[in-house]
């Protein structure tokens, strides 16, 4: 059973003007698809082909890990975005953010700085680790589950995520996504399940 590209939870133009349809054509249609294709090519005819994506992420290294993790990361990232998103979390997540970062504004500043400062390609995450919320950065394909952390929310800071729309201005992309697209309901569900 081959790994497949999940459908986007919105249309390619739904995130305009924050993230253009052109960016999603490439980011979803080419990059995410290529990770799926590369993974299938690497595991074809091997026992790994019958394992779950999470299993492969936890056990594999090298190309299988990179492609499996990038399949997972991108599927997760699409769910962290929605048209008309942004705003603030509510309920248990809002309370946990206040408890662990002091305030939502302090969280926003720390999360945005982590995303802006990650050197090279990678991701910034809000995670749950040892019953506390934390902000972490990962390089390339690396992801929280490999470090026994639960991902709640992410932003992709590979240059391909923003270069067409923002060129080198990564902080502008981060701020625009944070204020207009973040899907806090998804993050709240991730916390509730953890």
């Amino acid at each position: 059973m081959a790994f497949t590209l999940p459908s986007l939870p919105f249309s390619k133009s739904a995130l305009e003007p924050i993230i253009s349809a052109e960016t999603l054509e490439f980011h979803y249609g080419k990059h995410h698809q290529a990770y799926v294709n590369n993974l299938n090519g690497l595991v074809d005819g091997k026992p790994e082909a019958n394992r779950t994506l999470e299993d492969l992420i936890m056990s594999a290294e090298g190309g299988v890990f990179n492609n499996a993790a990038q399949v997972w990361n991108h599927s997760f990232y699409w769910n962290c975005l929605k048209p008309g998103g942004g705003g603030r979390p509510s309920g248990a997540l809002a309370a946990a953010i206040d408890r662990d970062f002091g305030s939502f504004d302090a969280f926003k500043e720390e999360f945005s700085a982590a995303a802006a400062k990650l050197f090279g390609s990678g991701w910034a995450w809000l995670v749950l680790a040892d019953d506390k919320l934390k902000i972490v950065q990962t390089s390339n394909a690396d992801l929280p589950m490999k470090h026994m952390q639960t991902a709640l929310l992410t932003i992709d800071v590979w240059e391909h995520a923003y270069y067409i729309d923002y060129r080198n201005a990564r902080p502008k992309y981060i701020e625009a996504v944070f204020d207009n697209l973040l899907n806090w309901e998804f993050a709240e569900q991730n916390l509730a399940r953890a």
Partner: peptide, 12 residues
């Protein structure tokens, strides 16, 4: 081969 070196013209 950072993406910034080629993305505007060659994308992926």
């Amino acid at each position: 081969v950072w993406e910034h070196a080629y993305y505007l013209k060659y994308q992926n």
